[in-house]
């Protein structure tokens, strides 16, 4: 991987910080204090824990989006896919709560993957069969997921006493251990890294991955080359959704031990996945690194909110600027090459 691949994201972040500083001054705070607080928050004490925790979801959605990109597809629906993945996994966990953990856990993980995969398959299928633009469909699927799960958590699956839209508590046998604090690091980070390795292997070492990439580069030639293009597109979207289905596994099984409507349905990490895939150049290693950078910002901003009162939504703002800086910087640099 050439040097440029590492420099671009860093420069983009630097630019974003610079522009962000203007806005911080505008609301009457000190940029230096703010950024110091962000970095401290990401690492100091319990901060590490949340950084790793966020990193997990970012890696997962980043991988999902990147897989789609490799096939020329824009999966903007990672939010919806993680929602149905998480919800279905929790449902299975509650349904079979008697089953011992060593059997149930794999089943539950598989349920998340299956549900997310199904949610991704639908736009993939529509695209492959009818050429329907997956951007709009995946976005719509996000809102359908919100509606569906919102309903489930307010009526049939709601925890019996109380008014909060949330599910029952998941059996303790499935509670994943946590380190470093309230929302700390948990084993799902290992799952995320394992997924990254698997995605790498899939894309560059298997026939399926070869075909996915071929279709992404040139569907016409792929057809000539005997690849079943519609099937590959549907498969790629389904795989993308399947991966995304795991993105909130840690929230549900390691942190809250239940599905909480406000938390699950407020997930925004699907968009962050786009950022991560972009910065990481759709390569698993790049995605891990980009996820780390973004996780630092995310958890740092959350901590900074308590410390010096910069709202955590500043993170979204930074993210937007990072994307623009990155994209423009890349084009400018690309023009200078040769």
């Amino acid at each position: 991987m050439d040097k440029r691949a590492i420099i671009s994201p860093l420069i983009s972040i630097a630019i974003a910080f610079a522009i962000g500083a203007i806005f911080i001054k505008f609301i009457g705070k000190s940029p230096l204090e703010a950024y110091a607080s962000i970095f401290k928050g990401a690492f100091a004490g319990e901060g590490w824990g949340f950084t790793l925790f966020s990193m997990t979801s970012l890696i997962i959605t980043g991988l999902a989006v990147a897989l789609g990109f490799h096939c020329g597809l824009f999966n903007i629906g990672a939010n919806g896919q993680l929602m149905v993945g998480g919800m279905f996994a929790a449902y299975i966990a509650l349904l079979f709560s008697g089953v011992p953990a060593f059997l149930l856990l794999p089943v539950v993980i598989f349920s998340a993957i299956a549900a997310g995969g199904f949610w991704g398959f639908i736009p993939g299928f529509l695209k492959s069969k009818r050429g329907t633009n997956e951007v709009v469909v995946t976005i719509m699927m996000n809102y359908i997921a919100i509606g569906m799960i919102g309903y489930l958590l307010t009526y049939p699956l709601k925890a019996s006493p109380g008014w909060i839209a949330q599910s029952e508590i998941i059996p303790e046998s499935l509670w994943l251990p946590r380190y470093k604090g309230m929302i700390g690091a948990d084993p799902t980070i290992i799952l995320a890294i394992a997924l990254a390795v698997m995605v790498y292997f899939l894309l560059w070492r298997t026939k399926t991955g070869y075909e996915i990439r071929a279709v992404g580069f040139n569907p016409k030639a792929s057809n000539y080359g005997g690849i079943n293009v519609p099937r590959t597109i549907a498969l790629a979207m389904a795989l993308s959704g399947a991966i995304a289905g795991l993105a909130y596994f840690n929230y549900i099984f390691a942190y809250q031990h239940r599905v909480v409507s406000d938390v699950l349905l407020g997930a925004n990490v699907g968009f962050d996945g786009i950022t991560v895939a972009l910065l990481g150049k759709n390569h698993p290693l790049g995605i891990i690194l980009a996820s780390f950078l973004l996780a630092v910002l995310c958890s740092g901003c959350l901590a900074a909110q308590f410390e010096i009162g910069i709202p955590k939504s500043f993170y979204l703002f930074l993210e937007g600027i990072i994307i623009f800086s990155f994209v423009i910087f890349e084009k400018v640099m690309g023009g200078r090459k040769e």
């Binding site: 806005f23 968009f271 786009i274 709202p311 703002f317 930074l318 937007g320 994307i323 994209v327 084009k331």
Partner: peptide, 28 residues
């Protein structure tokens, strides 16, 4: 001008919009 991918740019605009309209009112 920079011929960036239009979908990605659109996503970034949304992030900016969401971020700005949450962050500024809350901070101010």
């Amino acid at each position: 001008t920079f011929k960036a991918n239009q979908i990605v740019s659109g996503v970034a605009i949304n992030l900016l919009g969401m971020g700005l309209t949450e962050f500024i009112p809350e901070a101010m």
